[in-house]
C-alpha cells in the first residue's frame, strides 16, 4: 500500500458513501449536495490517477455547471424544502438489478486485476491531452461540437412551445398550461434557456 493507494481508498470510500446518500436520501436538495461531494471525490481520484486536465474539467463542468443546473431544476419544479416521502417507488427489483450490476462488475474487475500494481504514466496535462485531441481525435471533437450545438437548439425548442407551432401567433402563449398557482414558475421556465449557457 503506497500513499496513492491510501488516497484512492479514502476518496473512493467518500465517493461511494456520498453516492449511497444520493440514491437514498429523502431530501431533494440534499441529494444534489451529496452529488457535489461524490463528484468532488471523483475529481480527487482523477488527480491521483494523474489525469490533471480531466480532474479540473470535472470540477468545472460537473460541480460548476451540471449540479447547478440540477439544483435549478429542483427549485423550478417546486420541490418541497423538507423531507418528502414520495420520492421512491417500493422496489426489490431495483435493489436486485442495481446490486447485481454493481457486485457483478466488482467480481469481474477484481478477478481481472487481483492485487497487481502498475506504475503511473506521465501526467495528463492540458498540453499532452491537447496534442492528442487535436492530432488523433479531431474528427470526434468536431462531431461533439455539432452535438453540443444541436443539444442547445433542442433544449431551446423544447422549452419554448411557441416555436415551430402551427397556428396563429400568440396562441402558444395564451394557451399555456402552467402549474396551479401564479404564472411565475412558467415565466421562470421560459426565461431559463437563455441563462443556461
Amino acid at each position: 500500500m503506497t500513499g496513492a493507494d491510501v488516497l484512492l481508498l479514502a476518496l473512493g470510500a467518500v465517493a461511494v458513501g456520498a453516492g449511497v446518500l444520493v440514491v437514498t436520501t429523502k431530501h431533494l436538495v440534499r441529494a444534489g449536495l451529496y452529488l457535489v461531494v461524490c463528484l468532488g471525490a471523483l475529481a480527487g481520484d482523477f488527480l491521483v490517477l494523474s489525469a490533471e486536465l480531466v480532474a479540473w474539467v470535472q470540477v468545472l463542468i460537473y460541480v460548476g455547471a451540471v449540479v447547478v443546473l440540477l439544483l435549478f431544476a429542483v427549485m423550478l419544479t417546486r420541490a418541497p424544502i423538507g423531507a418528502s416521502d414520495d420520492l421512491d417507488r417500493p422496489g426489490w427489483p431495483a435493489a436486485l438489478i442495481g446490486g447485481g450490476a454493481g457486485l457483478g462488475l466488482t467480481v469481474l474487475l477484481v478477478d481481472a486485476y487481483r492485487w497487481s500494481t502498475v506504475t503511473l504514466p506521465p501526467a495528463g496535462t492540458a498540453e499532452r491531452l491537447g496534442e492528442q485531441i487535436f492530432q488523433s481525435w479531431v474528427l470526434p471533437f468536431e462531431v461533439l461540437s455539432v452535438l453540443l450545438l444541436s443539444a442547445l437548439v433542442g433544449a431551446i425548442v423544447l422549452s419554448r412551445p411557441d416555436i415551430g407551432r402551427a397556428g396563429p401567433p400568440g396562441d402558444g402563449r395564451a394557451g399555456r398550461a402552467g402549474p396551479p398557482g401564479d404564472g411565475r414558475a412558467a415565466d421562470l421556465v421560459d426565461s431559463e434557456p437563455g441563462g443556461r449557457r
Binding site: 465517493a15 461511494v16 491521483v48 490517477l49 454493481g102
Partner: peptide
C-alpha cells in the same frame, strides 16, 4: 498504484 481500487469504486458507483 493498485488499479483494482478505482475499478471497484467505479463498479460500485
Amino acid at each position: 498504484m493498485r488499479p483494482v481500487i478505482p475499478y471497484v469504486t467505479a463498479a460500485l458507483l
